[in-house]
Design a binder for these strands. Structure first.
Lengths: 189, 189
DNA sequence: AAACGTTTTTACCAATTGGTAAATGGTTTA
DNA sequence: TAAACCATTTACCAATTGGTAAAAACGTTT
């Protein structure tokens, strides 16, 4: 719970009472490996803060393959905030790659916070903006490099993740088949 | 100037006096093809609204090549807002791909608007958020497809742009050499 | 019309990646 | 322990893309 408070305080000053109130609205849950937190085509109904574990954000490409767009881990928000706010179906999935410990807010929890804490809308905006920018940074520089270079920059960005994520997920993040990825990894060592 | 007003009104309600005030702060300039609106390593000093013409956002990869991240055109904001706000050097370039007609706001203009119009900070936040989301949509689904598919989806996203942008810029957007791109384009027809 | 610089196309071969299939390794279940 | 299941590796060949170089097309200036 402290991790959540520390995270929020990066985006605005709040009193102890206020952070306690927010914490009181959070529900602690465990999401087992492989399960989906939210799914493409459905309206996001919750905001998650990842205490421990790894999520991946995925979408379906032309061929119907589920492609990993990026990974989210440790002390980050995970939500399609745009569609959570607009109450529109998401185009993406959020899936637990490992068993995950989460703090979850329902829409009602989130609204309660909004109505109780002056300036929360601005804090939420800043948090969401930060999420968007991280999304871009996690994903962006990939196309212009070959797969080996992409893998090396993945390792720089997510050094702790490589051995906790199935090879096939990393391969789809890199935009190659798992066979190609396996070969690349061998050639590097 | 009307285009700017219409754009802003999508993000919040303002009176005629207020939109006139904003318009009075805008400076109309022409940026010739090939010139840079802002450059990597420099602090962004202006916000641009593109009336007519095409920008590209670029960065330098490992090999020092200038890679096109995405294109911005017609009635859109063009600015590295994050670094404009934080007064930090940008990692990217904004370059005019064609001769561009712009409405430009200096930092002082922007601050004047912020100080004069209640709620402008929220409107600016929403505009910036929209820019970020468009960035992700313009860029994101590329790696998981082959170059031909990427080109076809580029044509869907930017149908009016293909014949106004040099082939080499499109190739770098697609993550391939211009020779490969030329070949792909031939095979499709 | 000629000369120039730039952009685009083409060609060739090398390197990378994909597709299919089978083999290996590890974990869970009966 | 064996069987079943899943993830990963390897192998083979086909398809795609890169690198280098040259030719062709285009636009601009003289």
């Amino acid at each position: 719970m402290e991790a959540l408070t520390n995270y929020i305080l990066k985006f605005g000053n709040l009193s102890k009472e206020q952070t306690d109130f927010i914490a009181s609205k959070a529900t602690s849950i465990t999401l087992p490996k492989g399960e989906y937190f939210s799914e493409a085509g459905k309206i996001p109904r919750q905001v998650a803060f990842i205490i421990d574990g790894i999520f991946r954000l995925t979408f379906y490409n032309n061929k119907g393959e589920e492609i990993t767009n990026y990974f989210i881990h440790g002390n980050q928000l995970a939500v399609d905030y745009e569609n959570f706010e607009a109450r529109l179906p998401s185009a993406d999935n959020l899936q637990a790659v490992t068993d995950c410990e989460l703090l979850v807010f329902s829409r009602k929890d989130w609204d309660d916070i909004l109505n109780s804490i002056a300036g929360w809308d601005k804090i939420a905006d800043r948090m969401y903006r930060k999420c968007l920018i991280e999304t871009i940074e996690k994903r962006s520089p990939l196309v212009s490099e070959d797969a080996t270079t992409r893998y090396l920059s993945f390792m720089e960005k997510f050094p702790a993740l490589a051995n906790r994520i199935p090879l096939s997920y990393i391969a789809s993040y890199l935009g190659i088949t798992q066979q190609s990825f396996s070969r690349i990894r061998r050639n590097i060592q």
